[in-house]
């Protein structure tokens, strides 16, 4: 089985891009499964189901979504192997822009959109910087110049990645993208022992543990102060 992790800011078009690419792969007879990680709510699992793709969804709720991801991805991979998928796609929203759910030796894709603003590539950390493939969406509604400026911004942050433009509505570019997702010769049996490409942020303070009161005396653990 191949595993691909796809992440990107909310509403950047991850699901649309995946579904269009999956369509091409399924035509080739590739058996696909998906898992959607999100925070509070998602209906994307219905979209996968509608496309005939077996899907699991994981909501992190009160936990840090990326910590939740990394504690569950191994079991999800085992599920994919048991189901005999050729390709398992893990989709997760990058919620705080700091984390990336990328794993060493596992293909990592970041989806961002042209509307998100010219400085966005700089704001997104390892999620963009450590991706193997960067997909830029919503190019059909901005000018050619803005597309070029945005792509240059992405390139400056991650010069090693393959940068592709995909239209999530018409699917233009999705076939080409799909050819990069699945490789018959790649085979993973387990994630045990593999490592994250980048550490998750350290966060252990009283608020992680459910504190709601504001004030110095309620703050404990890993606390940092703004420089005013």
């Amino acid at each position: 089985m191949n595993l691909v992790t796809i992440s990107g800011p909310p509403s950047s078009g991850k699901t649309a891009v995946i579904l269009k690419a999956a369509e091409s792969l399924m035509k080739r007879g590739v058996k696909i499964g998906a898992v959607k990680f999100d925070c509070l709510h998602t209906d994307d699992d219905l979209a996968y189901e509608k496309a005939g793709i077996p899907v699991k969804k994981g909501l992190s709720g009160s936990l840090c979504p990326d910590h939740y991801f990394v504690s569950n991805i191994e079991a999800v991979t085992d599920w994919g192997i048991k189901e005999n998928f050729d390709l398992l796609i893990s989709e997760s929203a990058g919620l705080c822009n700091r984390c990336s759910p990328y794993i060493k030796e596992i293909k990592a894709v970041c989806v961002i959109d042209n509307l998100s603003g010219i400085n966005t590539p700089k704001k997104i950390g390892p999620m963009l910087r450590m991706a193997d493939i960067i997909v830029i969406t919503k190019g059909d509604i901005v000018s050619q110049a803005e597309r070029e400026v945005f792509a240059a911004g992405v390139y400056a942050v991650n010069p090693s990645a393959i940068i592709m433009h995909i239209n999530g509505l018409t699917g233009q570019g999705a076939f080409e993208f799909s050819t990069l997702l699945y490789d018959e010769n790649t085979q993973i049996d387990t994630l045990k022992g593999k490592k994250l490409r980048f550490s998750m942020p350290s966060a252990l303070c009283s608020y992680c543990l459910g504190e709601t009161r504001i004030g110095e005396s309620y703050q404990m653990g890993n606390v940092r102060k703004i420089n005013l």
Partner: peptide, 28 residues
């Protein structure tokens, strides 16, 4: 195919809009 800096096709369509908050000069 793969380079971010080098694309074969530029596109112009009716649906495209400018979205950046800049003057013409700054934008160019």
């Amino acid at each position: 195919r793969f380079s971010g800096n080098k694309k074969l096709v530029a596109q112009l369509s009716q649906n495209m809009n400018f979205v950046m908050d800049l003057s013409v000069q700054e934008f160019l």
